[in-house]
Design a protein around this nucleic acid. Structure first.
Lengths: 81, 81, 81, 81
DNA sequence: GTGGTCTAGACCACC
DNA sequence: GTGGTCTAGACCACT
């Protein structure tokens, strides 16, 4: 098990999650693309991608092929985590 | 959506799954390492890793850091899928 | 049916083909990537991609996933076309 | 406290350090990978890794994730050690 | 022009 | 010696 934020992708994921929870990205909003995230954070696209994947696994966002990643409609459960 | 086996990792995953269901790898058994799978199939380790990840997501195997990947004890649900 | 060079991708393909036949790219050589071709010709990457695809279909080059496109060893048949 | 060169990794580190100070590896140069060092010296990769870590701690080299280890620009301080 | 897959090869964390 | 992360950069599938 690893502590959160030990890794680059965790840091990026945490930051995005904070922005989502703060309402900077609202349900249905388009997240920055993997390329944008990579450029913004100075990492490779795959690392940015891992961050988005982490949020998908947390149930905060979903991806559409060829479209991008979007904020999910909150379900009661992710305020609890 | 993509058809199964369109991709290399799907092919490897399908083959491993078949072997697990056929009993070639039994619950608790150690799967070949990512490096072995990569060598056997002539792919990069990451592609082999994606195959194992697919099986993890299907609930057929689990991973232990520094140890390897192992066949799960079957639960009633994966005969159904 | 369309006349050759009606389309941008045909022009790019023709140019690449000329370079290959002239020996600027030799068998086994790595062609410029789709991104490079797109930038060089000021076109969308998809257009550059179509050019390379045309050469693949002509049998002049082959692609390797994650590697790029390479000039084929000439076989008797492509002098005929 | 241990005497230098009591351990394999110290011997490898000393050797690398000598090569750096002799200019065989110059500032910015890429050191051999951990795997190469392990093979060259017939040791386990972890041992090779410890050697590089020792040089990092001495301030002679730095590591970049996914890239390798590189010789540092000399700063006044490592003549002192 | 996005996300999806793949190659190549490195270091990191753990057993 | 395994899986985990990361870089670099390519092609693939889809909108």
């Amino acid at each position: 098990m690893h502590r959160s934020d030990d890794y680059l992708y965790d840091q990026i994921a945490s930051q995005l999650m904070a922005q989502i929870l703060a309402g900077a990205y609202k349900p249905g909003d388009h997240l920055p693309s993997e390329n944008e995230l990579a450029t913004q954070h100075g990492v490779h696209r795959l690392t940015a991608r891992q961050a988005v994947t982490a949020l998908v696994e947390k149930g905060l966002v979903y991806r559409l092929q060829g479209r991008g990643a979007f904020v999910k409609e909150p379900k009661l459960d992710y305020a609890i985590k």
